[in-house]
Design a protein around this nucleic acid. Structure first.
Length: 119
DNA sequence: CCTGTGACGTCCC
DNA sequence: TGGGACGCCACAG
């Protein structure tokens, strides 16, 4: 699993101060148990010293096929954030449904029920 | 160096 | 419940 992080940190241009902030974000995301979801803001709070946008940016920078469960990270509305390009949104929903996470008729996730209880 | 932009969040109406 | 305005900060050009 440590290999996982290493792979994730291998993003294009982001190495800051050796101990990259992205690594922290990815590590935190990796701690989200299967069948649970969290929000960008919460991840940012957990990591500390960074804003939700940075978390989103970190997700966007993730290489395809990374072991980081980026799909479990959604916005505070409980919806899958629409990315600028790519069909990742549909892919994300499909992955979440594969984890028994149910979506509301409007395509939302009940954070009360599926939200990561920790922190 | 300066500007635009974005997988966000909170506040207000 | 829903939508708009503002704030936020790193990254790319």
């Amino acid at each position: 699993m440590a290999r996982t992080i290493s792979s994730a940190v291998n993003s294009p241009g982001n190495n800051r101060c050796g101990d990259s902030l992205y690594a922290r974000i990815y590590a935190t995301v990796c701690q989200i148990p299967r069948g649970r979801v969290s929000t960008y803001g919460r991840i940012a709070r957990l990591v500390g010293g960074c804003s939700a946008r940075q978390v989103g940016y970190a997700m966007a920078s993730l290489p395809a096929g990374s072991r980081v469960p980026w799909q479990r990270v959604i916005n505070h509305k409980g919806e899958i954030s629409c990315r600028k390009r790519g069909d990742g949104a549909g892919n994300q929903r499909r992955r979440l449904e594969a984890e028994n996470i149910r979506f509301s008729p409007k395509g939302r996730i009940d954070l009360k029920r599926y939200g990561w209880p920790i922190f």
